[in-house]
Design a protein around this nucleic acid. Structure first.
Lengths: 205, 205
DNA sequence: GACCTTCTCACCTACGTGTTAAGC
DNA sequence: TCGCTTAACACGTAGGTGAGAAGG
């Protein structure tokens, strides 16, 4: 059985307005030992798959250059040489494998992926990145073909990436403007939004 | 392609010790408008699947008799005639479809299924039951066969049920002993466990 | 009245945030 | 010292409990 390579596959980035608020400031994503979720969350919608065929969807993080970056005087500057690269598998979306009609039904969210700077992770949700290196998320769609009674083939049929979602991995935020945007739009950081509002009120008194 | 009907499939109930605490008292499960999780949670481990074949796993609730039950003087008594039966689809485990090797890797938990007494539900996790009727959970394993470019067949290959997990659906607990067991073993009910302990301490003072 | 259902509530579990101080 | 990382923390989101009063 041959893969149904559909020439009409398209992957659309959701929440593009939000991503474009971060992009011009150079976005940052926290990495921790246990793993930290991304914010904004990467979400896509997909069209053009064969509804009855089976697909697996993966998220990669491509290192976009060969620099270790430094934040100096409010500016990101490329350093001399990068840390040794990390070879790790991609994050496989937790609803994989599934039918084309499933993937096209609703927006696909990568909210469960966790970014970490520690190897030796058992969980399938953690992805290891080098801190202070620049990455670009990439989506790969592969078709799952049942070739015989004893095997399956996973054949890439589409790959795309989103420049708007580029970021530098950090262990603590460097740019205060990035921190402010994270607090403003991430519901889980509402504690700090309320504090800011209270401060404003106290200043007004 | 023919289904790989494996004669060696076996499904084992997990947490059997916990279930057998409830069984002799006649277990009860709450149904609510929004849907209520089961406790204990139904968990199984599966062996004997073909690792490379694809399966879907479903949970049914078989009505085990034709009675509407009543709790009178600390005893469950069968009533005369049951309410009209509800015809609804099964709960499909959220990791479906998936490979045999995936299902056999870890214990499979049905923690997300929610029991309700209201029809007209949009969610795929809610299962409608008749209150005061007796049910027995049943697991069905079906193999997914890609028959052609434009279709899949889902063929049942194994079905089993667990007498230990039988229960009567209720809108409020009838038997205080059942309530006590739920509080004792369900972490989400710890508030009431602490209250009991505090009461005991206050009595001791 | 008796029986069953519904709703609100306090109190938990579980975990996602940036902050801050300490560590290296 | 400086740059970066770690761990504890307060404070949110999100949602799972039975209790108890009210409703039908």
């Amino acid at each position: 059985m041959k893969p149904t390579v559909n020439e009409n596959i398209n992957v659309y980035l959701e929440d593009r307005d939000l991503w474009t608020k971060f992009k011009p400031l150079t976005n940052e994503m926290i990495v921790t030992k246990a793993g930290r979720r991304m914010f904004p969350v990467l979400k896509v919608s997909i069209r053009g798959l064969d509804p009855e065929s089976m697909y697996t969807i993966e998220l990669h993080f491509d290192q976009v250059d060969s620099h270790r970056w430094r934040y100096v005087n409010g500016q990101w500057q490329p350093g001399s040489k990068p840390d040794p690269p990390i070879q790790r598998g991609p994050y496989v979306h937790n609803e994989s494998p599934n039918f084309g009609k499933h993937w096209m039904k609703d927006t696909i969210s990568f909210s469960k992926v966790k970014l970490t700077n520690k190897t030796n992770h058992t969980g399938s949700t953690q992805i290891v990145l080098n801190s202070l290196h620049k990455y670009e998320p990439k989506i790969r769609i592969s078709q799952v073909i049942h070739t015989s009674k004893r095997g399956n083939e996973t054949i890439p049929v589409y790959t795309t990436s989103f420049p708007e979602t580029e970021f530098i991995a950090v262990t603590a935020y460097q740019n205060d403007d990035i921190t402010a945007l994270k607090i403003r739009y991430n519901p889980f950081a509402k504690a700090f939004l309320d504090t800011n509002k209270r401060d404003e009120r106290e200043l007004a008194d």
